[in-house]
Design a protein around this nucleic acid. Sequence first.
DNA 1: CGATTGACGTACG
DNA 2: TCGTACGCCAATC
Length: 110
Amino acid sequence: MDKDFFEQVYQVVRLIPKGKVTSYGAIAAYLSAKRSSRVVGYAMNAAHTVKPRIPAHRVVNRVGLLTGKHHFETPFAMQAALEKEGIKVEDDQIVNFDKHFWDPSVNLKL
DNA sequence: CGATTGACGTACG
DNA sequence: TCGTACGCCAATC
């Protein structure tokens, strides 16, 4: 099994603290593949096929937009999950996204 | 095997 | 400042 890019992505997503969110580009950049941001999103697409469940609801695009909410079991699942963690979501967009933003590299540096 | 799409991001006009 | 175009990697048609 070639724990490829996908495994790495899942690993990072699982490391996202509760009440925090990150972006595809951040994960891609952390994996030194910022140019493959799309692949990160694709990995998330298959995230539901991996175990344990991947908190994909904590992963959004760089503007904090819940672009992938439509891929959840229900479009509300993502927003509900975020709000449940204390993150406000308005118009499918995370409020104070920059404030809730979490970078994988931060976890390492610290 | 070639073309298109996608949960993105950056560059250019 | 806003809108459009392109690139990047992988999977699907």
